[in-house]
């Protein structure tokens, strides 16, 4: 994991300002079936390589971000505002 995260709002900031939640997953539709919900809540791709995660700039702008990075090399690829990401990955 990078020691610095490029917040789209605040610029490069130390990782300690951020909190990680986990995989950046789209929440299923309310009417989705039980298996879909189970998969969403409990199962993870857990790839060795490119991975998108939710990070929160807790001690900064307090925006949630989607950080794309490599779990094997810790290279950061992209950081986006989660709301923007959500709108663009809309159902």
């Amino acid at each position: 994991m990078a020691s610095l995260i490029a917040c789209p709002h605040c610029g490069r900031r130390p990782k300690e300002e951020f909190t990680i939640k986990g995989a950046a997953l789209v929440r299923p539709e309310p009417e989705a079936d039980a298996d879909t919900w189970f998969d969403h809540v409990y199962l993870r791709d857990n790839p060795r390589g490119r991975y998108a995660e939710f990070w929160h700039h807790t001690s900064g702008c307090r925006r949630w971000l989607v950080v794309t990075r490599d779990t094997a090399t810790h290279e950061l690829e992209e950081t986006r505002d989660a709301a923007l990401w959500r709108r663009e990955t809309a159902r």
Partner: peptide
């Protein structure tokens, strides 16, 4: 607060 912000921003930005 973190959780609510998550809901507001990442789940339901609309």
């Amino acid at each position: 607060l973190n959780h609510l912000e998550f809901c507001a921003q990442a789940l339901w930005p609309e």
